[in-house]
């Protein structure tokens, strides 16, 4: 993670702000990300080809504006952070603001999702969807694990029949269900 040394503007309240930032470095990374994207947009806009016959405002003007807005927002965010102004995390009934962030669950959810993306074409949509539903339910605390998978299979097959069979979306049924007529539109 990036060390937050570059942000301190005034040494006095900068110190407490820095301590707070060290506890939540992600916020700094997010603000730096906004700034970096803005700089990238400003630089990359120069590579956009402007046709000779361009009218007054070419394809570069708006990107420059957007880049400037990103840089401006990024700098404002960094200044705000240095002054100790933190983002209020988005709340929600199923979100418990009092527990520490469970990065492991997030990583596992992402892994399950990636597995789904990689398997759609090989094992077919119904099984890949079963994997996605069952996997994420188990990661989120469903027990026993086989019930989550069984429920996922029922749901995936239902969706396949309704969307693939009745509504005509061409979801790949995969080798296992290839021969089942209701699974194809």
């Amino acid at each position: 993670m990036t060390t937050p040394t570059s942000v301190a503007t005034s040494p006095d309240d900068g110190r407490t702000a820095l301590a707070a930032l060290r506890r939540r470095p992600g916020e700094l990374v997010a603000a730096l990300g906004v700034l970096a994207l803005g700089i990238f947009v400003l630089v990359d806009t120069r590579t956009i080809v402007v046709p000779g016959s361009a009218n007054t405002l070419g394809p570069r003007a708006f990107p420059y504006l957007v880049g400037a807005l990103l840089v401006g927002a990024g700098i404002t965010l960094l200044v705000g952070l240095a002054r100790g102004r933190h983002g209020e995390e988005e709340g929600g009934e199923d979100v418990d603001a009092s527990v520490p962030t469970d990065w492991r669950t997030v990583a596992l959810l992402v892994a399950v999702f990636l597995a789904h993306v990689l398997t759609i074409t090989t094992i077919g949509w119904p099984l890949a969807a079963t994997l996605l539903f069952g996997g994420s339910a188990i990661v989120l605390g469903a027990r026993p694990w086989w019930r989550a998978l069984a429920l996922g299979l029922v749901l995936a097959v239902t969706v396949q029949v309704v969307f693939g069979g009745l509504l005509g979306l061409s979801l790949p049924p995969g080798p296992l269900f290839e021969s089942v007529a209701v699974f194809r539109g």
Binding site: A129, G141, L155, S170
Partner: peptide
């Protein structure tokens, strides 16, 4: 909650995949 949010992920992935039937759209979704 675990079934609720698993279902949300499932239908989200379905919607993106059904755009072009290309897994890359689901990757962008992630």
């Amino acid at each position: 909650r675990h079934y609720l949010y698993a279902g949300i992920l499932l239908f989200g992935a379905l919607g993106s995949f059904a755009l072009n039937f290309a897994p890359v759209d689901v990757l962008v979704l992630l």
